[in-house]
């Protein structure tokens, strides 16, 4: 993603979840979202068999 695409994506998600981004935070939020997005590619690029369930804890 280009920097412009990332900025547009961050603004779109922020609008959807109603998270205002103050001017003081904008550069830092973009920087951190970009870092997260890059790191996440290692995760989503890894193929997992369909029978691998999420590991979140829940005991009814």
């Amino acid at each position: 993603m280009t920097a412009e695409q990332i900025e547009a994506t961050v603004d779109a998600i922020a609008a959807a979840v109603q998270m205002p981004i103050p001017a003081e935070c904008r550069a830092g939020v973009l920087q951190n979202w970009t870092l997260m997005h890059g790191i996440a590619q290692q995760v989503v690029a890894f193929e997992l068999p369909p029978d691998v369930a999420p590991a979140a804890v829940f005991r009814p």
């Binding site: 961050v10 998600i13 922020a14 979840v17 998270m19 981004i21 935070c25 550069a27 830092g28 939020v29 920087q31 951190n32 979202w33 997260m36 996440a40």
Partner: peptide, 12 residues
């Protein structure tokens, strides 16, 4: 922590 936490609200 602030900007990381805000970015964390926007993780797909």
């Amino acid at each position: 922590t602030r900007d990381r936490f805000i970015a964390g609200t926007l993780v797909p």
